[in-house]
Computed example of a mutant assay.
Amino acid sequence: MMLSQKSADTVRATLPAVGAAIGSITDLFYRKLFEAHPELLRHMFNRGNQAAGIQRQALAGAVAAFATALVEHPEVRPDAMLTRIAHKHASLGVSPAQYPLVHRHLSAAIAEVLGDAVTEEVAAAWDEVYWLMAGALIEIERRLYAEQGVLAGGTWRPWEVAERVQETADVVTFRLRPADGRPAPAFKAGQYVSVQVELADGARQIRQYSLTNPPGATVRSITVKHVRGGTDPDGEVSGHLHEHLREGDVISVSAPYGDLVLDATDAPLLLASAGIGCTPIVAMLEDLVDRGHQAPVITVHADRSPADHALRADQERLVTKLARGSAHVWYERPGDAWPAERTGRVDLTGVEIPDGVHAYLCGPLGFMRSVRAQLLERGVRPSDIHYEVFGPDLWLAQD
């Protein structure tokens, strides 16, 4: 994947100006896109992320990172970033036909924000950047759809709620089975599905939830925290699921996607989570138990209190089944008997980190940054630290 030399020189020269204005460009892009196609905001994009500007930041970070990679490392395609985006797109049912639409409004936004600086040469160079990125994503998404045996964009199937389990005051597990009689699709531990619900105003909003059961199970489980306030306007989808979804109800669920999956490795593992980020970790633990993993498995979890710790019993049960499993938990409000060194933020100082460990992180960005920094200080290779962000990937926008 390489830019033409002429375009590479132009992008390199204009990258500082585009980078400085990328937030304004993406903000205008989304406004133009939704003015022309309001159905996309109602039925595909997360309205909460749009209102908070989070999706804009993520898009800006991705475009800037991709363009930078093209001019600084033209011999290497940024597959990690592209794959993460493609998995999210596939879970939403994005199709190749939508890329020209995005191109039209993004090009118009660049031209409007940068004005006379966008010469024909500059426009052509940035068009080349866009279509290199779009072409790579379309190809990865085509492969992902083919692996699931669905046509591009045709990811949705009806699933029935077989059981509803109240885990904590604001977390519920829904056990789901296919409502169309077809087999449940295979998945890998750590992957997620998209859930689409029709809200009171007729909008069909989509959110992603990790699968928490072992990959071999026929019934699928998602564990949903009721988001209250924050970026999602009062948790409109999670609230709908909590308040309205009962046994026997049918919802639309995507095929499983997500690139944070366990490698087939015998290496030591560290699985770190915070809050509802425990959900993919539980699936990984289930998989490791089923595999009979013999190397050390260190689990690290941070939460507000024991009462808020969803799937706590499952984590404890699975860790004890592992040959060399250990659990380390930090609570903000633990109660009198909890050790002082395990109160507050995660501190790995007293945790033994084996040589060659592979780490998987899931939780708020600040938590993952802190744990990653501590692991790097302990000598863990950056390539052996993997992460999952619930929602738009702001890591790219802030690194």
Results as ranks from 00 to 15, higher is better:
Ala51Trp: 00
Ala51Cys: 01
Ala52Ile: 02
Ile54Gly: 01
Gln55Ile: 13
Gln57Thr: 05
Gln57Cys: 07
Ala58Phe: 05
Ala58Arg: 05
Leu59Ile: 13
Ala60Glu: 01
Ala62Tyr: 11
Ala62Arg: 01
Val63Gly: 08
Val63Met: 13
Ala64Arg: 10
Ala64Cys: 11
Ala65Trp: 04
Phe66Glu: 01
Ala67Leu: 05
Ala67Ile: 00
Leu70His: 04
Val71Glu: 02
Val71Trp: 00
Glu72Asp: 15
His73Glu: 14
Pro74Glu: 08
Val76Met: 11
Ala80Lys: 09
Ala80Gly: 12
Leu82Cys: 09
Leu82Ser: 09
Thr83Trp: 09
Thr83Arg: 15
Arg84Met: 11
Arg84Ala: 15
Ile85His: 00
Ile85Gln: 02
Ile85Glu: 02
His87Asp: 13
Lys88Ser: 11
Lys88Cys: 06
Ala90Glu: 10
Ser91Tyr: 03
Leu92Lys: 08
Val94Ile: 15
Val94Thr: 12
Val94Asp: 04
Val94Glu: 04
Ser95Met: 14
Pro96Arg: 10
Pro96Tyr: 11
Gln98Leu: 14
Tyr99His: 07
Tyr99Glu: 07
Pro100Met: 09
Pro100Asp: 05
Leu101Ile: 15
Val102Glu: 10
Val102Pro: 11
Arg104Phe: 07
His105Met: 06
Leu106Val: 09
Ser107Leu: 09
Ser107Pro: 10
Ile110Arg: 00
Ala111Gln: 14
Ala111Leu: 05
Glu112Phe: 08
Glu112Pro: 09
Val113Phe: 02
Leu114Ala: 02
Leu114Ser: 01
Leu114Phe: 02
Ala117Trp: 01
Ala117Cys: 03
Thr119Gln: 08
Thr119Asn: 08
Thr119Phe: 09
Glu120Tyr: 04
Glu120Gln: 11
Glu120Cys: 01
Glu121Val: 13
Glu121Gly: 06
Glu121Ala: 14
Glu121Asn: 03
Val122Trp: 03
Ala123His: 12
Ala124Cys: 04
Ala124Tyr: 03
Ala125Trp: 05
Ala125His: 03
Glu128Asp: 05
Glu128Thr: 08
Val129Phe: 06
Trp131Thr: 05
Trp131Val: 07
Trp131Lys: 03
Leu132Ala: 09
Ala134Ile: 03
Ala134Lys: 05
Glu139Ile: 01
Glu139Ser: 14
Glu139Gln: 14
Ile140Arg: 08
Glu141Trp: 03
Arg142Val: 00
Arg143Val: 13
Leu144Gly: 09
Tyr145Lys: 06
Tyr145Arg: 06
Tyr145Asp: 11
Ala146Asn: 03
Ala146Met: 06
Glu147Asn: 11
Gln148Ala: 14
Gln148Asp: 13
Gly149Trp: 05
Gly149Ala: 11
Gly149Glu: 06
Ala152Ser: 14
Gly154Pro: 00
Thr155Trp: 11
Thr155Cys: 15
Trp156Tyr: 04
Trp156Lys: 07
Arg157Val: 07
Arg157Pro: 14
Pro158Ala: 05
Trp159Gln: 07
Trp159Pro: 10
Trp159Asn: 09
Glu160Met: 13
Glu160Tyr: 05
Glu160Ile: 12
Arg164Asn: 08
Arg164Thr: 10
Arg164Tyr: 02
Val165Phe: 12
Val165Ser: 11
Ala169Arg: 14
Val172Glu: 06
Thr173Asn: 05
Thr173Cys: 09
Leu176Ala: 08
Leu176Cys: 07
Arg177Gln: 15
Arg177Trp: 03
Pro178Tyr: 08
Pro178Cys: 10
Pro178Arg: 12
